[in-house]
């Protein structure tokens, strides 16, 4: 089922978006929450061949469901509440007031600082497949009537890894929120650094963090929503700099990947390590919010910030 985003968002916005193809079909299969970041990547590519199959087995409760049932439930298992990966478009659509989304104008030309072999081919193929120009979808919209700048990362685009384009789109969104004095909401999903861009990828951590700090010093409200998976350079930059930090249930959130840690310490990690609940227990997450409560929770926070206290 391929949808045209133009049908979802207001028509006048489509001129800037061009046409974004929304392909929900992969969402339900991709990225089991129980898998590590890298494994999630493999799963999504490995299972794409089964898209005709209209049945999905939930990786958590192991029950079989019709894919459509899961899709209609915001890509959340109807029985156990397991959160499947969701496309950036679908997440955005379910978050914002209908017809209010306007993408920010920030399209970055492809660059290949390391001359990494076949990198451009990979990007072009992903752009075609996901309908996104990069691993972030950013724009302005209303949530329950409140204006906000919203950026949603997509783990389907090279694992949401942060290269120059991702760093720029995030920074641009932060700066826009700063200029217009709007609240900023970022949904993170990232395997970390964009290895193909080497040191330029590392520098995006400084660039984005500096922008958030400037926004912060100017009194801006930043709500960071951590989704599965959020690791590496994104965790160690803008993801963990929110005034309010929310997380989807059971998302993998950490700096070092679980496998690297296991190799370093020479033992298996305990159950639930680096999951949202674990981070909450250790004081790094304000609230864990299931996907169906996300919109009202964010609206609540925006409402509480709509007037300054005296």
């Amino acid at each position: 089922m391929k949808l045209n985003v133009g049908k979802i968002f207001k028509k006048k916005d489509t001129a800037e978006v061009k046409v974004i193809k929304l392909n929900d079909d992969n969402s339900v299969n991709a990225g089991a929450n129980t898998a590590s970041a890298n494994k999630a990547d493999k799963d999504s590519s490995a299972q794409q061949s089964n898209t005709e199959d209209d049945v999905t087995v939930c990786p958590k409760c192991k029950q079989e469901f019709k894919k459509q049932e899961v899709k209609d439930n915001l890509n959340v298992c109807v029985a156990c509440g397991h959160h499947y990966v969701i496309s950036a478009d679908k997440r955005m659509k379910n978050l914002v007031d209908k017809g209010t989304f306007k993408p920010l104008k920030c399209k970055v030309e492809f660059t290949n600082p390391l001359n990494y072999p076949d990198y451009e081919d990979k990007i072009l193929a992903l752009q075609e497949k996901t309908g996104l120009d990069e691993a972030v979808l950013a724009g302005t919209a209303k949530i329950d009537g409140y204006d906000a700048v919203i950026a949603v990362m997509s783990s389907k685009f090279l694992m949401g890894s942060m290269g120059i384009a991702v760093g720029e789109k995030i920074t641009n969104a932060v700066e826009y929120a700063d200029r217009k004095k709007l609240p900023l909401i970022i949904f993170t999903a990232s395997g970390g650094a964009r290895m193909q861009e080497g040191i330029m990828s590392l520098m995006q951590m400084a660039k984005t963090s500096a922008a958030v700090e400037k926004f912060n010093n100017n009194g801006g409200l930043y709500i960071s929503v951590l989704t599965h998976p959020t690791t590496g350079g994104v965790t160690a930059s803008f993801a963990t700099l929110g005034d309010i930090t929310l997380a989807e249930p059971e998302a993998l959130i950490g700096f070092a990947g679980p496998r690297v840690i296991e190799q370093t310490i020479g033992q298996k990690l305990p159950e639930g390590f680096q999951r949202s609940e674990f981070l909450q227990e250790h004081g790094f997450v304000d609230q864990i919010v299931p996907r169906d409560k996300m919109r009202e929770t964010i609206a609540h926070i925006l409402r509480l910030h709509s007037k300054r206290g005296k």
Binding site: S237, T240, G254
Partner: peptide, 11 residues
Amino acid sequence: GQGTAIATNLA
């Protein structure tokens, strides 16, 4: 909070 600590320093 390794990630948070690094991010805070950058900011």
